[in-house]
């Protein structure tokens, strides 16, 4: 993936103060093409940043641009070229997904016939079949998230802002949504800015991750740099946690105890070695294994590291 001349978006000393809280504090960051993840705890300023980038909220100070357009003066042009999937629910219950997405396409300036075609195409791409003719009031959370994504894509934007698209989804729904986001970024060729409070889920779909906390930039780097540090596996055994930890440490693995969980750092040069070592150690000690999983990188892990 090559970096284009104009970044997807860029901010310069962006600050937004509300009467009682500072949402963004001197944020300078830029994102290239592809899928960019924006990670932060709740209240870190993610949604505020998206509103500023859409040109809907004026910053207190600083500048921001999207696709080379200034958010302060060219909001309309920006909103013509981008799509937005809000975090909150935004679907009227008494109309069907088809009608709703057609209407939203028209609001983006598509003529009615083109809007109908695009809506049918887009709903198919997000995976909504026959149920798209039923009123949306009866949809599951997964279906609602798909419709929200469809309305953001229906006018074929160059860039989409997806605010917490996996919110409220079960693990299977999360996986489906993440796969869909990956497809939007690669197969559809639409640049994506996706927010989440879970770094672990973004590392699976993003090319680049930006971490903000309290409105400040904590880190902005390509995903490879995150995953290298994040590779850990979690092990939980019924009894003999300490014996297992000692055994693994003796084998040269980096082990830490977190309550009932042992987290083992996966060796960067030979990932298979760590997994084998855990398996063998559990077998040799005759322990009953309750859990063995790839640890999701968590945002706290990034917070512990020094800011790059």
């Amino acid at each position: 993936m090559t970096a284009s001349a104009t970044p997807c978006f860029a901010t310069e000393g962006l600050t937004k103060r509300f009467p009682r809280v500072t949402a963004l504090d001197d944020l300078t960051v830029a994102a290239g093409t592809g899928v960019t993840g924006l990670v932060g705890a709740n209240g870190a300023g993610k949604s505020t940043l998206i509103k500023i980038l859409l040109g809907l909220l004026p910053p207190t100070s600083g500048r921001a641009s999207v696709l080379g357009l200034d958010t302060a003066t060219q909001g309309l042009e920006i909103r013509r070229a981008v799509g937005y999937m809000p975090e909150h629910d935004c679907l009227p219950p008494d109309i069907s997904a088809t009608e709703f997405v057609v209407h939203m396409a028209q609001m983006s300036g598509l003529p009615r016939t083109a809007a109908r075609e695009r809506a049918a195409d887009t709903l198919r791409h997000v995976g909504l079949d026959e149920e798209r003719y039923r009123p949306m009031g009866g949809y599951s959370t997964g279906m609602r998230q798909r419709v929200k994504l469809a309305q953001a894509l229906v006018h074929d934007p160059r860039l989409v802002f997806l605010d917490e698209p996996t919110n409220g989804l079960d693990p299977q729904g999360r996986d489906d949504m993440l796969a869909l986001i990956r497809r939007v970024g690669t197969e559809f060729g639409i640049d994506v800015l996706v927010t989440s409070h879970l770094l672990g889920e973004l590392e699976r779909v993003c090319d680049h991750v930006i971490v903000i906390d309290g409105g400040r930039l904590l880190r902005s780097s390509a995903i490879r740099e995150f995953t290298r540090a994040e590779q850990t596996i979690a092990v939980e055994v019924e009894e003999g946690q300490r014996r297992l930890a000692e055994r693994l440490a003796a084998l040269g693995e980096t082990v830490a105890a977190q309550g009932r969980l042992l987290t083992v750092q996966v060796s960067a040069d030979d990932p298979g070695r760590t997994h084998d070592a855990v398996r063998d150690a559990v077998c040799d000690l005759g322990l009953s294994l309750l859990r063995l999983e790839q640890r999701r990188g968590r945002i706290e892990d990034v917070f512990k590291e020094p800011v790059a």
């Binding site: 859409l54 809907l56 909103r79 629910d89 009227p92 939203m104 609001m107 300036g109 006018h155």
Partner: peptide, 18 residues
């Protein structure tokens, strides 16, 4: 009322509509 209640308004405003 429905646009306010079901929060459809932000979708309109995220488009080239003031």
């Amino acid at each position: 009322a429905p646009d306010l209640r079901f929060r459809v308004l932000p979708l309109y405003l995220s488009r080239p509509l003031t």
